[in-house]
Design a binder for these strands. Structure first.
Length: 556
RNA sequence: GCGCCCGUAGCUCAGUUGGAUAGAGCAACGGACUUCUAAUCCGUAGGUCGCAGGUUCGAAUCCUGCCGGGCGUACCA
């Protein structure tokens, strides 16, 4: 719908230019902004084109607005009224019947309504969660999973070819620490009294893994090995099992990846060495103090960063440079990474590396996901691993279920801190936005059930839409019409949380309408039109929930 | 010290990339069930958008400086 207005404005600019009414640029070059009017007095849509172009045309914004307005055709079936208002906005009043046609479109397109495959989009590789396989996922990862998976669905709905990937850090320090943690527990099981070192994994799952390892074939031999070999064996035994657990958690959370990428392959295939060499050739890497450093420009990052340690081991940064180059080498145009916000200082580094390798700055978008605090009975639950009380995603899933969890993770923009209230997520009332939205779907399904029981003809062909003339009905229809624009804007801004806000608004409009008006009325004409309307509402709720990965229940 | 993010109603948060009179929900207060699900609805009240300047037709939004909070500042990831 916005595009329709944009075209009208473009035409007006073109006509005004042609008749030399104003000094205006070629409208094709113009990025014309169209927005929904907040106040019904301002019509349905507004453009600030006159305000934006007044400077160049050397005219007063209002004068230019009046000129442009005269070139917008007012017809009964599209735009019924055009007004200039405020400092120079042009307001558009759309024909009510045009809005109603949206209902036919929804019925025609069904679960494709809101989807847009028309534009040619860049190929996207979306990487998210990528938690180290050293322990189970916690709720922070859950948020990353919900945001990432929803973003993938959102982008796909707008025609982006999207692949999702999980980067598995199965190499380097974390693996050593994991292996060592297990070896310590093994020694403990063997009766040695040990002091558990700091910065190692202490969760009960490490004990379980140690026990499993001991019980495995040749498991007992491991303690006879030299320390380093034992640590390596322990890590090799443990990480695939932990990763399996992570995958099971993700599966139960409704998240499926197109691929898993293992850091170890970067090393074994020499990709890290190759990227360091390439940087060296480009004069972006040099030796200093026995290590190899990435040379940072002033504008990129505050200081140079080590690629290869004096010990000869590559840093995580070197591996990441190789990994991102590898991703682009696989033919993607745009990389999107979701990182925990504690990694934000790392963004300039990776971007600088990509630029040094010859890629444009905007080839990588990093979304930073803020931390989650669990709240129960109004009190924050400590997230410390030691407390071990309630930090895993699994426990949250067991308690509130995937629907509520996914929806809640998307009730805030991802860069703002989230309090996840467990009691609220289980509550069955208006307070809980998940139920509030799902209830719309269930209520409408219920109407059709009752209609069937009563033998009412719920035939959807050719209703008389002029029967939908109540202000609440028009408001509802206009909101349904906004769905495609909302999705397009959310995808462009990479902001999946807009979908939850949209759905809560839609639920507001529907519940109010439902409360005051009966769908199954005596008047056959009104009944048929209203059934047509609520079925469209049901469809849009279902489509929105589908992008969120949340179920749309038939009854509650 | 330096860098990044944040500061909006008592609480939790939106605010369409600079637009018109700053919006929701919760909590508070007052109402609505003989009905297609009250897991719902209607109403009242609530604000110096942290503070001070600047940019312009126009600022919660952009710039500068303070105040307050979070994170980062590794040859960890």
């Amino acid at each position: 719908m916005k595009e329709l207005i944009r075209q009208l404005v473009r035409d007006a600019v073109y006509a005004a230019r042609k008749e030399k009414r104003a000094d205006l640029p070629d409208p094709e070059q113009l990025n014309i902004e169209v927005s929904r009017a907040k106040d019904p007095k301002h019509g349905d849509y507004a453009t600030n084109a006159a305000l934006a172009l007044a400077g160049q045309a050397r005219m007063k914004p209002r004068d230019l607005a009046h000129i442009l307005a005269t070139y917008v055709p007012e017809k009964n079936d599209i735009v019924t009224n055009v007004e200039v208002a405020g400092p120079g906005f042009i307001n558009f009043f759309m024909a009510e019947d045009l809005w109603r046609q949206v209902l036919r479109q929804i019925h025609r397109e069904r679960d494709r309504y809101g989807h847009d495959a028309s534009a040619k989009r860049p190929r996207v590789l979306l990487e998210f969660v990528s938690a180290n396989p050293t322990g189970p996922l916690h709720v922070g990862h859950g948020r990353g999973a919900a945001v990432g998976d929803t973003l993938a669905r959102l982008l796909k709905s707008q025609g982006y070819p999207v692949a999702t990937e999980y980067y598995v850090n199965d190499a380097g320090n974390q693996m050593k620490i994991l292996g060592r943690s297990i070896v310590f527990r093994l020694k403990e099981l063997a009766g040695e009294s040990i002091v558990f070192p700091e910065k190692h994994y202490v969760g009960e799952y490490i004990r379980d893994l140690a026990r499993d390892l001991l019980g495995s074939p040749n498991g007992k031999e491991i303690l006879a090995l030299p320390e380093d070999a034992a640590v390596e064996k322990a890590a090799e035994f443990a990480y695939p099992r932990i990763l399996e657990g992570i995958q099971a958690d993700l599966h139960d959370f409704g998240v499926a990846y197109d691929s898993y990428f293992f850091e170890s392959t970067l090393h074994s295939e020499g990709l890290v060495a190759r990227v360091v060499q390439e940087l060296r050739e480009k004069g972006k890497a040099e030796d200093k103090d026995g290590a190899v450093w990435f040379v940072m420009e002033d504008a990129e990052d505050e200081k140079d960063r080590v690629l290869i340690r004096a010990t000869g081991e590559p840093t995580y940064f070197a591996a990441d440079a190789a990994y991102h180059k590898n991703k682009l080498g696989r033919g993607y145009d745009l990389l999107i990474d979701l990182w925990g916000s504690d990694h934000h200082g790392y963004v300039p580094r990776v971007k600088a590396a990509l630029q040094a390798l010859g890629y444009p700055d905007d080839v990588l978008s990093v979304l930073l996901v803020q931390f989650v605090t669990l709240v129960r009975e109004g009190r924050k639950i400590s997230m410390s691993t030691r407390a071990g009380e309630f930090e895993t995603l699994r426990k949250v899933l067991d308690e509130v279920g995937p629907d509520a969890a996914r929806f809640f993770f998307l009730t805030k923009r991802c860069d703002s801190h989230l309090d996840f209230d467990l009691d609220l997520a289980k509550k069955q009332s208006r307070d809980n936005p998940v139920y509030y939205v799902q209830y719309v779907h269930a209520r409408i399904a219920s109407i059709f059930r009752i209609a069937a029981e009563r033998g009412i003809d719920a035939d959807m062909t050719d209703p008389d839409l002029s029967a939908l003339s109540l202000p609440e009905e028009v408001r509802l229809i206009k909101h349904l019409a906004d769905f495609p624009d909302m999705l397009a804007d959310a995808a462009e801004a990479l902001e999946p949380h807009r979908i939850t806000f949209y759905l809560v608004d839609l639920a507001d409009f529907f519940h109010a309408y439902y409360h005051d008006n009966r769908v199954l009325t005596e008047d056959a004409r009104i009944k048929k039109a209203r059934l047509f309307l609520v079925e469209a509402v049901r469809q849009v709720v279902a489509n929105g929930l589908a992008i969120l990965g949340v179920t749309a229940p038939e009854r509650m």
